[in-house]
Design a protein around this nucleic acid. Structure first.
Lengths: 209, 209
DNA sequence: AATACTTTTGACCACGTGGTTAAACTATTT
DNA sequence: AAATAGTTTAACCACGTGGTCAAAAGTATT
């Protein structure tokens, strides 16, 4: 099977993913997708009956991929601090290869909050906490991390890696003014992020409230 | 410009701001804006000739307001740590009153990066750094903050307050699963964010590299 | 009261949109 | 080879879109 013989459905999906990520659901045009897939517009409707269904297929797959990227950290046999370094290295690298994905997903969820529920409803956060607790009981105590502080902590950890991509346009302009490149900022960030969070965690030692 | 002029123009602007923030540029409809302003659609075009011009007016004003919120921190006579606490309290409160603003602005910039250049080009970041250096010379040295580390630091500080609003849909769903409210999460965050950053900064003391 | 000017309206338009349909083409089965 | 089922296409459509325009309504000036 040659390059051009790729299955039509796959060609459509890839083209749709490109256009949707670039323009968003509202800004995307079926004709644009058809053009990029180098097929007739009617074929879109033959494989995915409506724009909504096509968007849904694309979103579910891409969003699933992104959220899955948070998981493998827990299968590694590392200390909490090592896991943090591992996470930022992996996660920022992944996002750097798909730089528009975070903003796309966050924005579409903002447009239609139901989109995310299907993806997250399968995740058992209680189980996740138990796993964390059994793997890192001592460390959690040391850092004074409890079930109650998890949301603040986790959202902060995610914020530090995701935000630069969600706010890429702003950041690029500011960095440019300072004579820096977004690319090297991102490279730096892998280490900076881990150092920053680990520093914040260590400062919690012996500060039970 | 008469009294009724201002009223109409203001009514249009407010309605447009609502719709644009809610639906984004692509998703917004001129008819929808006219309906909310309770006027004829033609009147939109009478005051703001095109959708683009109307959007531009709205975006420039809202974005300007948001970025201006970062400034007043520097006019206060406080230590760096106090300023951080002050900033998070003020900034998160402001965003909580306009919860869709951050996602809207970030997304529209992502759609059209030129939008932000007009706003940021007037800001002199060199002057900003000099101000910071003169106000907090000793502290910057203590925390080992240099001109080079500023972008990483500042983007991290912003990330921690902005991200929860940009990712509100995801966060709300996750918090719900854990039996928590977004509102109380945000209230907690004002203090958590400051503690976290201050902790990270303190861990930099005597760690010159 | 008449005039000139501004604001508001309804009717209208060209165009791009997502979507449909019937026919043409291709592969598979009989 | 013929019939059948699946794939692809061009032509088409209803509709919503941003935008226009001339006339009406309202207001200020003379």
């Amino acid at each position: 099977m040659t390059e051009t013989d790729r299955q039509t459905e796959e060609k459509i999906f890839d083209a749709a993913a490109e256009v949707f990520v670039e323009k968003g659901m509202d800004g995307a045009r079926m004709q644009d997708i058809a053009d990029r897939a180098m097929i007739n517009k009617s074929l879109l409707h033959y494989y995915y009956r409506t724009k909504d269904k096509l968007f849904d297929a694309v979103f579910q797959k891409l969003a699933g991929k992104v959220f899955a990227k948070f998981a493998p950290v827990f299968s590694e046999n590392l200390t909490l601090e090592e896991k943090l370094r591992f996470f930022y290295k992996e996660h920022i690298s992944f996002m750097n290869e798909n730089p528009r994905l975070p903003a796309f997903i966050l924005n579409e969820i903002n447009r239609n909050p139901d989109l995310i529920k299907r993806i997250l409803k399968n995740i058992d956060f209680e189980k996740f906490w138990i796993m964390l607790e059994t793997q890192h009981k001592a460390e959690l105590e040391t850092y004074n991390i409890t079930r109650e502080t998890i949301p603040q902590l986790m959202s902060t950890i995610a914020a530090i890696s995701v935000f630069p991509f969600a706010a890429r346009g702003v950041l690029e302009t500011i960095l440019e003014n300072a004579g820096m490149q977004f690319g090297s900022y991102i490279e730096e960030r892998k280490e900076f992020a881990a150092d920053f969070v680990i520093g914040a965690l260590r400062s919690r030692i012996n500060k039970k409230q």
